[in-house]
Design a protein around this nucleic acid. Structure first.
Length: 464
RNA sequence: UCCUCAGUAGCUCAACGGCAGAGCGACCGGCUGUUAACCGGUAGGUUGCAGGUUCGAAUCCUGCCUGGGGAGCCA
């Protein structure tokens, strides 16, 4: 008797036709009648359930099986029957059904539609629903696709540190890493906390970006990427922000901003192709139940050039717009969400790169353009989600970088090693950060980041 | 952090100053191919919490808590 998975059956049921098979799984739905019943079983290996038909005539424990609730784990043995006229192409005629783990009647997941908000409260059980089965199968595939894309191109995968003493954004919103006693920390003469007595002998935090370290490795391996967890202690409560998320950060040497955008565009298209090919069932589900226009939109993007526009052009475009904006558009100010959405959703109807932002509103490491006013930065805006990529060509000229650091009040002693990358064989290089979850949202149509992270961490929320 | 909306049965919602309800789920029963099955019945409530107004509050007012959406910040 063959032990099989639904995945195996879906990929070739014919070879099992009329044969005895054994399956394990969890009951999604159980309906019984007087002398026969049906179980929809999900065994975890495929999005689809398999229908189990059981009959009083053949099952000595028929009444026990008929009483099994949703969520129960069972093992079943029976004959595989092809049913080309039915809604499902095959089913199992059960000869034996054994209870492996019961699920009492207070099991919170019902065979009906639940709100996303409710399912977040049962995040340990929600992977047993259709939506989350699809989301997390795709999350796994997307992670693999990212590795495959970069590996095929010869990029080296870099594990940048999780604990770090540098603050790549120059922002203050970091999770402190310390072993000091919060009630009674060691104190210097001036009564400040004495971090030299801390575990690492200095102030440390969880990483907000692996970029600076990636630059070091790009200047050795030419093309590298990081892909790992990232932590931001921002007090932002939106459907697009989480305190713990994953980020992909490629860094390429002997490359400029155009090479960077070409890479980003190629990557996004690769990921779309990968999912449409490898996750057909799940993508079909998203298209039908989550975002009706999803497939059409993704298909269009595969075949179109992403728009590219400079910040200055974007400002002109926005000033010409008939639409009224809450915030006025003005050269020198950052684009508001409403402006970004207008550009990607009303002007271009597709992903758009915006480049050449004013240097005052961007990070210190971005390469200063010839006009001395803008930097070689690029953001990729996509309809529905907004910014999913932020990147730049890096400042490789030591003296210009030093000036920028001074302008941004960044202590160059702390980044002595970063400066040395410019001193020893420094070359032009560029890179970007892709928010993994934001990409996942964009590619699945799921509109809240809390629903694409298994156990999301957000402000005031760290359950599970 | 600011703005805004909402918290009523396990879930999704109705009742909007006058007896707290429905569908789904659960439980009991029926049904020879169901598939978010269908049909009949039963149970299930301190209306988020604390105050206040009123003869009377789920409903109006105040504060707090929780959640959603928008903004800022960003990926």
């Amino acid at each position: 008797m063959d032990r099989v998975t639904v995945r195996q059956l879906v990929s070739g049921a014919e070879s099992y036709a009329e044969k005895q098979v054994t399956l394990n799984g969890w009951i999604r739905n159980n309906r019984d009648q007087k002398s026969f019943g049906f179980i929809a079983l999900n065994d975890g290996t495929h999005f689809n359930t398999i229908q189990i038909v059981y009959e009083r005539e053949f099952l000595p424990n028929y009444d026990q099986v008929a009483a099994l609730g949703v969520g129960s784990a069972i093992s079943i043995s029976g004959k595989l029957a092809l049913t080309p006229e039915a809604r499902q192409p095959f089913e199992i005629k059960a000869a034996e059904i054994n209870l492996e783990g019961e699920s009492p009647s207070d099991y919170p997941i019902q065979p009906k539609r639940h709100s996303r908000e409710f399912l977040r409260e049962v995040a340990h059980l929600r992977p047993r629903t259709n939506l989350f089965t699809a989301v997390f199968r795709v999350r796994s595939l997307l992670a693999f696709a990212i590795h495959q894309f970069f590996q095929e191109k010869g990029f080296v995968y870099l594990h940048s540190p999780i604990i770090t003493a540098n603050d790549a954004e120059g922002a203050g919103e970091l999770f402190r890493v310390t072993t000091l006693d919060p009630k009674n920390p060691p104190v210097t003469d001036g009564e400040a906390v004495d971090y030299s007595a801390d575990f690492f002998g200095k102030k440390t935090n969880l990483t907000v970006s692996g970029q600076l370290e990636a630059e070091a490795y790009a200047l050795a391996f030419k093309d590298v990427y990081t892909f790992g967890p990232t932590f931001r202690a921002e007090n932002s409560n939106t459907p697009r922000h989480a305190a713990e998320f994953w980020m992909i950060e490629p860094e390429i040497a002997f490359a400029d901003l155009n090479d960077n955008m070409d890479l980003a565009e190629e990557m996004v298209k690769y990921l779309i192709n990968y999912l449409l090919d490898k996750a057909e069932t799940e993508m079909g589900f998203f298209n039908q139940f989550v975002d009706k226009g999803l497939k059409e939109r993704l298909e269009n993007i595969k075949n179109s050039e992403f728009a590219r526009i400079t910040y200055t052009e974007a400002v002109d475009e926005l000033k010409k717009a008939k639409q009224k904006f809450e915030y006025p558009v003005e050269w020198g100010k950052d684009l508001q969400t409403e402006h970004e959405r207008y550009l990607t959703e009303k002007v271009f109807y597709k992903p758009v790169f915006v480049t050449g932002y004013p240097k005052d509103i961007k990070a210190f490491y971005m390469r200063v353009n010839g006009d001395q006013k803008t930097v070689a930065a690029m953001d990729l805006l996509v309809p529905g989600v907004g910014e999913i990529i932020g990147g730049s060509q890096r400042e490789e000229r030591a003296e210009v970088l030093e000036q920028s650091m001074a302008d941004f009040n960044i202590n160059k002693e702390d980044l002595w090693w970063y400066m040395e990358l410019r001193k020893y064989g420094g070359v032009k290089h560029a890179g970007f950060g892709l928010g993994f979850e934001r990409a996942l949202m964009y590619l699945t149509g799921v509109s809240n980041i809390r629903d694409v992270i298994p156990f999301p961490r957000t402000v005031n929320s760290c359950e599970f």
